[in-house]
């Protein structure tokens, strides 16, 4: 089986298990403030990690290329409080233009 299929099945299993367990365990188990705080921070660090790796690295090297240009535009669009679709599309268009013509 390919790594992709293994990852699809593994991820689906764990994601559903968390969803189902949440519906099933007593609320008091997970209401501890420490758990709540960690849960607030986990998406922040993982999503930031993903942005970082996908924008500024290639395998094990740090690089600045068309993706950095696109993500800089996305960052600016977010600072300007532009709508989410505009953020994503402006980043993609910038990146594509730099990739094709720079």
């Amino acid at each position: 089986m390919s790594p992709q299929w293994i990852s699809v099945i593994g991820t689906s299993f764990f994601c559903f298990s968390f969803k189902y367990l949440g519906q099933s365990v007593p609320a008091s188990w997970l209401s501890h403030p420490r758990i709540q705080r960690i849960n607030t921070y986990i998406p922040i660090v993982l999503l930031t990690g993903l942005v970082t790796v996908q924008s500024f690295t290639e395998k094990t090297k740090l690089i600045i290329d068309h993706r950095a240009a696109g993500i800089a535009v996305a960052f600016t669009a977010l600072l300007l409080k532009l709508p989410f679709p505009i953020v994503v599309i402006s980043a993609a268009v910038t990146s594509a233009l730099v990739y094709r013509y720079a």
Partner: peptide, 14 residues
């Protein structure tokens, strides 16, 4: 620009 759309989505989510 698809390779940059993905991190841009993550940036928007965070």
């Amino acid at each position: 620009g698809l390779d940059t759309a993905i991190p841009a989505i993550f940036l928007g989510l965070v």
